[in-house]
């Protein structure tokens, strides 16, 4: 039996269900609620904004069928299916979805970088008055021009120089600043939290007595295993001595501890990936196909 037939069968059934349910208006619709905004600070100005509404709320004042949201819902559902089609092999639909993804994600981070970094940090420092009048009206009035921001402006321009075919070395200055700063703060943070901090966390008594004076053997074994685990694994990561004799045996224990660590990591990762799949399927079944309604959106 070839899976192709089964898959084709499933696709046909899904297609028919979608067709039938859409034609009867039983799926894939979005509603929005019109809310009038009248800001307190300017009584003569007012406008409408639209919020998500549940299909069950249709008929309530201001709630109506939303074309843009419905279109969006269908596009999201089709894109989701397009990505899943990769499982059947690389194909045009997947490639198209991927091309859209590449463009949208690059565009989005650029917009976010522009408004939050260039406007919010650079221009707010260089031209606070202009920004107060336009993009950032809430900038504190006491904020003065910070001329030091010219330095990152120039360095930023130098970074963009990398796009030109010649003189790529110019971008080394900002890159060096980038790397130097990273080196500086990473050195401190890692040493503090991951070296000193971990040593301190590992200092525990190997014999533990409960409050009533009795010997707490469970906790004692736990502490003993933990400390031995850390020390033996550190031995495994010891490179300047050859691992023979006792050191070999200790580092072997270390490797087993690491394998249990990785086993836990493996199990947890599987759990995570399945959760993500469940979330996508829930989107398809709930938001788009209207097969389930756990949030009582429609009833």
């Amino acid at each position: 039996m070839k899976p192709d037939k089964v898959i084709a069968g499933i696709m046909l059934v899904v297609g028919l269900v979608v067709l039938f349910r859409t034609s009867t208006g039983g799926m894939g619709q979005s509603y929005s609620r019109e809310v009038t905004v009248s800001p307190a600070s300017a009584p003569d100005v007012q406008w409408s904004k639209y919020e998500d509404a549940f299909p069950r709320e249709q008929g309530e004042p201001g709630v109506s069928f939303s074309w843009s949201r419905t279109l969006g819902l269908w596009i999201s559902a089709l894109l989701t299916l397009a990505i899943f089609s990769f499982l059947l092999g690389d194909n045009v639909v997947y490639k198209l979805a991927e091309a859209i993804f590449l463009g949208v994600s690059a565009g989005y981070v650029m917009v976010a970088g522009f408004y939050d970094g260039i406007v919010g940090k650079l221009l707010a420092g260089l031209a606070p008055t202009l920004m107060r009048d336009s993009l950032l009206p809430g900038l504190p009035p006491e904020q003065q021009t910070n001329w030091l921001n010219i330095v990152p402006l120039i360095l930023g321009m130098m970074l963009l120089w990398r796009l030109s075919p010649k003189g790529g070395w110019i971008s080394r200055w900002p890159i060096a600043l980038f790397i130097g700063i990273t080196a500086g703060f990473r050195m401190l943070a890692y040493f503090e939290a991951d070296f000193v901090g971990q040593i301190q966390n590992t200092i525990v008594p190997l014999l533990v007595f409960a409050a009533d004076g009795s010997f707490d053997w469970v906790q004692s074994v736990k502490n003993l295993l933990m400390v031995t685990g850390v020390l033996s694994t550190l031995t495994y990561f010891f490179f300047s001595v050859e691992h023979t004799g006792v050191i070999h045996r200790v580092s072997r224990v270390g490797i087993w501890v690491l394998m249990i660590t990785f086993g836990v990591g493996f199990g947890m990762t599987v759990m995570g990936r399945i959760a993500l799949l469940a979330a996508r399927l829930e989107f398809l079944f709930d938001d788009w196909l209207w097969l389930i309604d756990p949030l009582n959106r429609r009833s």
């Binding site: 899976p3 898959i7 499982l87 799949l277």
Partner: peptide
Amino acid sequence: IDRRWIYLAMLCAVGLPIL
């Protein structure tokens, strides 16, 4: 095994409990 069978099994294992 054709890996698509496994994918299908996964789809059912995750999809059915949701439905």
